[in-house]
Computed example of a mutant assay.
Amino acid sequence: MITLNLDPELENKIQQETKLNGLSVEKYISLLIQESLENKYIQQSETLEYKAGEEKLNQFINRSVDVSIQPLSDEAISRENIYTREDKML
């Protein structure tokens, strides 16, 4: 059991909300707390996913590059070789 000492103004607002929603004060406060905790866990999960994605991106950016790879020739990246006859048909 938990006892709360609420500001009278807050208590009145809670009582008004419970009447509008047809809930007891206990049930209303319980639902608010449960929703708050669920939102907190969702935010923490999203933060962890963001940090994991950020870490993967940093690893990709900072990976070692194979310097033996040769750049493409001018011919390979010429307009004629990029755009084929099939592209003209579209």
Rank of each mutant, 00 (worst) to 15 (best):
M1S: 03
T3K: 09
T3V: 03
L4C: 09
L4M: 12
N5H: 09
L6H: 11
D7V: 02
P8W: 08
E9I: 04
L10A: 15
N12I: 01
I14T: 00
Q16C: 00
Q16K: 15
E17K: 07
E17T: 00
E17W: 01
K19E: 09
L20A: 08
L23A: 04
L23R: 07
L23C: 08
L23V: 03
S24W: 05
V25Q: 09
V25A: 10
K27E: 03
K27F: 06
Y28A: 05
Y28L: 01
Y28M: 06
S30M: 03
L32T: 09
L32C: 11
E35S: 06
E35R: 00
S36H: 00
L37K: 08
L37N: 10
E38Y: 01
E38K: 08
N39P: 00
K40H: 07
Y41L: 10
Y41N: 06
I42Q: 11
I42P: 06
Q43F: 01
Q43R: 02
S45T: 14
S45K: 11
E46D: 12
T47I: 15
L48C: 01
E49D: 14
E49R: 15
A52M: 09
G53W: 03
E54H: 08
E55T: 07
K56P: 02
L57Q: 06
L57Y: 08
Q59E: 13
I61H: 13
I61N: 14
I61S: 09
R63T: 06
S64L: 15
D66G: 08
D66L: 12
V67K: 14
V67F: 06
I69G: 05
I69F: 12
I69M: 13
Q70C: 06
Q70G: 01
Q70W: 03
P71M: 00
P71L: 02
L72C: 00
S73Q: 09
D74S: 00
D74M: 10
D74W: 05
D74F: 08
D74R: 07
E75D: 09
A76F: 12
A76P: 03
E80Q: 11
N81C: 06
N81P: 06
I82V: 05
Y83E: 13
T84E: 14
T84C: 12
T84K: 15
R85C: 10
R85V: 14
E86T: 12
D87M: 13
K88I: 08
M89S: 06
L90G: 07
L90H: 15
